[in-house]
């Protein structure tokens, strides 16, 4: 069972995660307008920038984050921004969209100039997240847990980060047991996705460079 404090923590993080997302007007642009390759690139770049801004706003709401050393806060956000972006996109792709929307989005990404060797693992990741049928609590908590990874480069006080991450892991573990009683491995599967995310993050920098060149 969840304690009252744990339930309050979940509600708080889910609220923050729902509140801080890419504005709908911007998301709509992805579906409505036709762009050439250059405009496509600029739109996706603009969305990535906005994503980072809303990610920071969400992160400010994670209990205890503001007590961390300021430079450690930046190191955590820098280290996790790409992973959090993939998680958010995965959440979008695993939701049931109105007819045709998923195809339009996928097509736009495929025509954005990114190389196939990167696109394939990205959509594989989206699919693997989709298969887990995660609830919004799991998405919000997993994002917070990703951000509070103590082993990011340049983090000085790793223990302080661990102290914030641990209660979130415990809450997520409990939620997995409650919401997926027939899949005792669900929590382990979620953590496995974090490993997959690290691999995507690792390839992201070189992908971005080749994208910029093309």
């Amino acid at each position: 069972e969840l304690s009252q404090d744990q339930q309050a923590l979940i509600n708080y993080i889910v609220d923050a995660h729902n509140k801080h997302r890419i504005p709908q007007e911007m998301a709509k642009k992805l579906l409505q307008e036709q762009f050439n390759a250059k405009e496509n690139f600029l739109l996706l770049t603009e969305m990535a920038t906005t994503h980072v801004q809303v990610l920071v706003e969400f992160t400010k709401n994670i209990p205890g984050f503001s007590t961390l050393d300021h430079e450690d806060q930046i190191a955590l956000l820098k280290g996790s921004a790409v992973e959090a972006m993939f998680l958010r996109s995965a959440q979008v792709f695993s939701k049931k969209q109105p007819n045709g929307h998923t195809e339009v989005l996928e097509d736009r990404i495929r025509r954005s100039g990114m190389s196939e060797e990167f696109i394939t693992p990205m959509f594989n990741f989206y699919r693997s997240i989709g298969e887990l049928q995660m609830m919004q609590e799991e998405h919000a908590l997993l994002t917070a847990i990703t951000i509070l990874s103590p082993d990011r480069p340049y983090v000085k006080d790793q223990q302080a980060v661990e102290r914030l991450q641990e209660p979130l892991l415990e809450v997520l573990r409990k939620i997995c047991k409650i919401q997926h009683p027939h899949d005792p491995q669900h929590f382990a599967r979620l953590l496995g996705r974090l490993t997959e995310l690290r691999t995507l993050n690792h390839h992201h920098a070189e992908m971005l460079e080749s994208w910029r060149m093309s």
């Binding site: 600029l42 770049t45 603009e46 990535a48 920038t49 980072v52 801004q53 920071v56 706003e57 400010k60 300021h70 806060q73 930046i74 956000l77 820098k78 921004a81």
Partner: peptide
């Protein structure tokens, strides 16, 4: 434009609450 800023700049500005810049 914001898209010309580096990741760290965007994070620093957003942390300081200057999202509109």
């Amino acid at each position: 434009p914001a898209s010309n800023l580096g990741l760290e700049d965007i994070i620093r500005k957003a942390l300081m609450g200057n999202m509109e810049e």
